[in-house]
C-alpha cells in the first residue's frame, strides 16, 4: 500500500477510500457479499427467529497478550449472538479511524479480524469506514454487528430464570481483565497473563445439544461475573447465592487481584459464559461443558435464590456471608 498513514481522504468517499477497501478490506475479508461492492449485503432466507447484537470496541492497548482489538471485535459480537442459543449468519464491521493512524497497524488489526471470522466460519458482509481529525479519536474504534438465527425450540432469557436454578461458569474467570490491567499498569508480571478472548458459539451449540434445560446464557464481559449475576437477578426478580470456593480463578489472577485490591468476580472475561439451568440437569450440563475445549475448567458455582431485594450473596470460604454488589465506578485499587 502506497500510503503509510490514514489521512482524511481515506474516509471521504473518494478514490483513496475505494483503494483502502480494495487493497485492504476486500482481500482480507474475501466473500461474495463484500466483493459485490454494494452499500449493503442481501442475505438469503433462514429458518427460525432472527437474533441481532452489536458491540463497539475501544480497548487500550490495541494489542494485548492473547488478542487484539480486531479479534476482540469479532469474538464480542459472536458471543453476544451465541448467548441467545443462535447459529451465526454474518457480521458487519464499522471502523472509526483517527487521522495519522499507521496503515501497518490497521492492516494487522484487519488481518486478525479476518482470521477470527474465518475460524468462526462467519463472513463479514458489509462495512463502513470513517476518519476523524487528529485528536478527535483514539487511533481506532471498531463496531461490529452480528446476525444469527435461533430455532423455535430454543428459548433463553433471564425471564426464564427461577429460584432453585443452578449457576455454572465455563472456566477460569478474570483472565482478560488481568491481561489488560497488567499491561496497562506496566506491571513487571505482565507476561504471565493471557486474555481468554475466544468465540463461544461452538461451546453454546454443545451445551444446547446436551439436552439440559438451560434457562439463560450470558457472557461476563465488562464488570465480570459479579455484574452479570446482578443483572440476571434484577431481570428475573430473584437473588443468587455463590460459593466463593467453587468459582474457578487462576492463582496468578488471584495474586494480581490481591495486589491491586480488586475482587476477581468483577474482572472482565472475553471467552467465558455463565449458564443458568434447571437443578436436575446441572450435572449433565457440566459434563457437556467440560467435554468442550473452552469449558474444561467449568464449574457449578451456586444457585438462584428467592432472597428479598435481589441480593447476590457469596458464602465465603469459612461460612460467612457477604453481598456481591453492582460496581460503583471503575474498580479502584485500595490505597493502603
Amino acid at each position: 500500500m502506497a500510503t503509510k498513514m490514514i489521512d482524511m481522504t481515506h474516509g471521504s468517499g473518494g478514490r483513496s477510500m475505494t483503494r483502502l477497501i480494495e487493497d485492504l478490506f476486500l482481500p482480507a475479508f474475501d466473500n461474495p457479499w463484500l466483493s459485490a461492492m454494494n452499500d449493503h449485503a442481501v442475505l438469503g432466507p433462514s429458518s427460525g427467529r432472527l437474533v441481532m447484537a452489536t458491540d463497539s470496541n475501544v480497548v487500550r492497548p490495541l494489542f494485548f497478550p492473547g488478542g487484539d482489538i480486531g479479534s476482540l471485535s469479532v469474538h464480542g459480537t459472536v458471543n453476544d449472538v451465541a448467548m441467545a442459543g443462535a447459529t451465526l449468519l454474518c457480521l458487519s464491521a464499522g471502523f472509526i479511524l483517527e487521522e495519522g493512524f499507521p496503515m501497518e497497524t490497521l492492516s494487522r488489526i484487519v488481518s486478525s479480524m479476518a482470521a477470527s471470522a474465518k475460524s468462526v466460519g462467519i463472513p463479514i458482509v458489509t462495512g463502513d469506514t470513517k476518519v476523524v481529525e487528529r485528536g478527535k479519536g483514539d487511533g481506532i474504534f471498531i463496531n461490529t454487528t452480528g446476525i444469527g438465527f435461533v430455532p423455535e425450540t430454543v428459548s433463553l432469557s433471564p425471564q426464564r430464570v427461577v429460584p432453585g436454578d443452578k449457576i455454572l461458569v465455563s472456566g477460569f474467570i478474570g483472565d482478560h481483565g488481568s491481561a489488560i490491567m497488567a499491561v496497562r499498569e506496566n506491571l513487571s508480571i505482565a507476561g504471565q497473563f493471557l486474555s481468554d478472548s475466544a468465540p463461544l458459539h461452538d461451546l453454546v451449540a454443545s451445551l444446547i445439544k446436551s439436552g439440559a434445560e438451560i434457562h439463560c446464557l450470558r457472557d461476563p464481559t465488562r464488570g465480570g461475573v459479579a455484574t452479570l449475576l446482578n443483572e440476571i437477578a434484577a431481570q428475573s426478580g430473584t437473588g443468587a447465592l455463590i460459593e466463593e470456593e467453587a468459582v474457578p480463578v487462576r492463582d496468578e489472577v488471584r495474586a494480581l487481584c490481591e495486589v491491586l485490591g480488586i475482587d476477581p468476580l468483577y474482572v472482565a472475561n472475553e471467552g467465558k459464559l455463565v449458564a443458568y439451568c434447571a437443578a436436575r440437569d446441572a450435572e449433565r450440563l457440566l459434563e457437556a461443558m467440560r467435554a468442550h475445549p473452552l469449558g474444561r475448567a467449568g464449574a457449578i458455582v451456586g444457585e438462584v435464590t428467592q432472597n428479598k431485594g435481589g441480593f447476590v450473596q457469596v458464602r465465603t470460604s469459612f461460612g460467612g456471608y457477604r453481598i456481591v454488589d453492582w460496581l460503583s465506578g471503575d474498580p479502584l485499587p485500595r490505597i493502603c
Binding site: P163, Q306, K308, G309, F311, Q313, Y321, D325
Partner: peptide, 16 residues
C-alpha cells in the same frame, strides 16, 4: 453497604 446490607433488609442469610 457493599458487603453486609442484606442483614439490614431482613433478607435471609444465604439459603432462600
Amino acid at each position: 453497604y457493599n458487603f453486609g446490607r442484606f442483614r439490614l433488609a431482613g433478607a435471609i442469610k444465604g439459603e432462600s
